[in-house]
């Protein structure tokens, strides 16, 4: 599924620049070590982590985008770093669990 389609249908906020990308699967974790071990290239990563080093992890594994849930504010330094490395960060006011319900609704499956 195209990232833009997900952004539009679920109503995600664009916190960084966004480019055309394909999303393949969803990964949920708040641990970077977990991302490094188990996330897959092209995953949409749902997390409450907002530290700069999320960019480091997302870029290494080539994740489609980071979605920061629970309406958490993302620090400017994280956004700046993400823009430089073409890492896309999106935001949602929903909880991780609520967002999953919406993602199922638009057809994303495990």
């Amino acid at each position: 599924m195209k990232l833009q389609e997900i952004i539009d249908k679920v109503g995600l906020k664009k916190l960084t620049n966004v480019e055309v990308r394909n999303v393949q699967g969803v990964f949920i974790s708040d641990m970077l070590s977990d991302v490094m071990t188990n996330a897959k290239s092209g995953n949409l990563w749902l997390t409450v982590q907002t530290h700069k080093n999320t960019v480091s992890a997302a870029n290494l594994i080539n994740l489609a985008a980071i979605v920061v849930t629970h309406g958490k504010e993302v620090p400017q330094e994280t956004i700046d770093l993400a823009n430089r490395f073409y890492v896309i960060i999106l935001g949602s006011d929903l909880s991780t669990y609520e967002l999953v319900s919406k993602l199922i609704g638009i057809g994303l499956k495990p």
Binding site: F27, I28, Y97, V100, S101
Partner: peptide, 11 residues
């Protein structure tokens, strides 16, 4: 995994 678990519970 977390996504699968959330999906199953949500359903």
């Amino acid at each position: 995994d977390m996504f699968e678990a959330c999906v199953k519970i949500a359903n």
